[in-house]
Design a protein around this nucleic acid. Sequence first.
RNA 1: CGGAGUGUGGCGCAGCUUGGUAGCGCAUCUGGUUUGGGACCAGAGGGUCGCAGGUUCGAAUCCUGUCACUCCGACCA
Length: 591
Amino acid sequence: MVQRLSTLFVRTLRDNPADAEVPSHRLLVRAGYIRRAAPGGYTWLPLGFRVFQNVARVIREEMDAIGAQEVNFPAMLPKEPYEVTGRWTDYGDNLFRLQDRRKVDFLLGPTHEEMFTLLVKDLYSSYKDLPVWLYQIQNKFRDEARPRGGLLRGREFSMKDSYSFDLDQEGLQRSYDAHRNAYIRIFERLGLPFAIVSAMSGAMGGSASEEFLFPCDIGEDTFVQCTACNYSANTEAVRVGVADTIDASSVAAAKVVDTPDTPTIQTLVDLFNAREDLQLADRQWNAADTLKNVVVNLRHPDGRLEALAIGVPGDREVDLKRLEAQVSPAEVEAFDESHFAANSALVKGYIGPGVLGTNNASGIRYMLDPRVAAGSAWITGADSHGKHVMNLVNGRDFTADGTLDVAEIRDDDTCPSCRSALTIKRGIEIGHVFQLGPKYAEALGLQVLDKNGKQQTVTMGSYGIGVSRAVAAIAEAMHDDSGLRWPLEVSPFDVHIVIAGKDDATITATAESLAAELEGSGLKVLLDDRQGISPGVKFKDAELIGVPNIVVAGRGVANGTLEVRDRFAGTAFETPIAQVGPQLVAQARGK
RNA sequence: CGGAGUGUGGCGCAGCUUGGUAGCGCAUCUGGUUUGGGACCAGAGGGUCGCAGGUUCGAAUCCUGUCACUCCGACCA
């Protein structure tokens, strides 16, 4: 049925809502696609819900095409499975917990690995049943500390999550590749540009993991791409290779230097450059010649607190996100004055490898950035107030407990794969594929009998797409200054017909007849039949709403033409009335 | 959770400094004029000023608390 704008449940806004900052959020609210209903929760209005359903349809078609089967779980889940896997506590404050009238604990599902695992365990027990791929499109709940960007990060949001179950790693790899390829097709159909980057698996556990990121300045994820090869990774997942060993035989013996008033790396470097006896023959000292030792506390899941020291070149900071990702599930806390006071070996501001390490005075585990090559010489703390030591050689004068790759990644850093330069970009995570491995199957006892009649633990994969987030991402990617622009595949309507100009029976009849013709051919039509509204308002609304094809029935009708506009190309053609229908139908068929 | 800012009809805002019972634009309704780029005239409806206390004869305005929102940071399949 032709949808008339005069009866469509919508109210477009002339002004931007004050609480919306990012363009997709502003436009989705202004054009009447969504309304905020709760902190981090949005209501879909008819226009928005059509787009949402279209995105979901594309996802369904591609998931079904690879043989995945759709199921649907409740959002309110029992605590027990999540206790077994530890996520009842590991998920922390981000988990919505609630109790029933008898004080029994429940949670609102943030993701459903446990439930899918138990479902398969419930029904299947033979290798002959595998592989099996199940998915659902469902609202997820996460008590985000800071929802933002409207649909981009909500506390209740729609996610397509699928799960694969295989007998072995080769099977898992096939399942993973099938989903990965399906995701590529999905995002291509949605018209979303994307980068596939290596990722950390985070709270999900498991091993191989890649993210689909929509590159975009307002994105919350930072990733690197190699300028030469196809390496790309979330900055949290970038792994710098361990530097080659350097021959240290010509390095003079380590020497302690008095360095009063050098609280920062810069003041230390300045002092070395100012002292004639310390100056270098061929260049200035710089921050990269110093070894900075950063001490943090790790809070382990069992509540235990462990101090950890990290040695990084002085020109780099420790990237807390990268650190958190590396030490997960432990959390990073500050090492404050009271902790310094409790460890007398540490001299704040002058900490050096002399006391760090499990076998040294502080007893603190000491990890080195992989850039700190064996055989490299450093200026670093001498563990005595106002003193540093120079020519301290890694491997000769000190050893660490291992390497830990958590220093910040910078533009122009070296690609771990081909040694060319990396560039840093931001992106919105729109999809994520994981090889979970046996973690959940093991925890929940999902086993099947193999050919030999022996119990085998199943290996799993998990694959997510943020459906509501994808709607926002498309809006973000496609909009222009006048409003939204939807690819035909997801547009709420195929054609937006505007009745413009003076009230004229011929114009109205022509528009009505075109609308009926298009609907008859299976297209979805939005007809702006509002009366007493000036054409300018209708044009502005049409551009704001963003249906890609706009047909204007107006002054041209007297000469036998309609104006056909392309929202993306910005073009407008006067087209003979009889040609308009067939032309739009052909375009829609070819989409 | 830390820092900054903001809460006044559906949306955007003024009023708050100096307390006196709420106003403007958009949107909505009625009538009329208008009709190819967010028209005009006349009239109308709609707000316990985020919430709860307090001060005061009197609070949108001052005080305290609280909730929510936005931005930056922390956090975040």
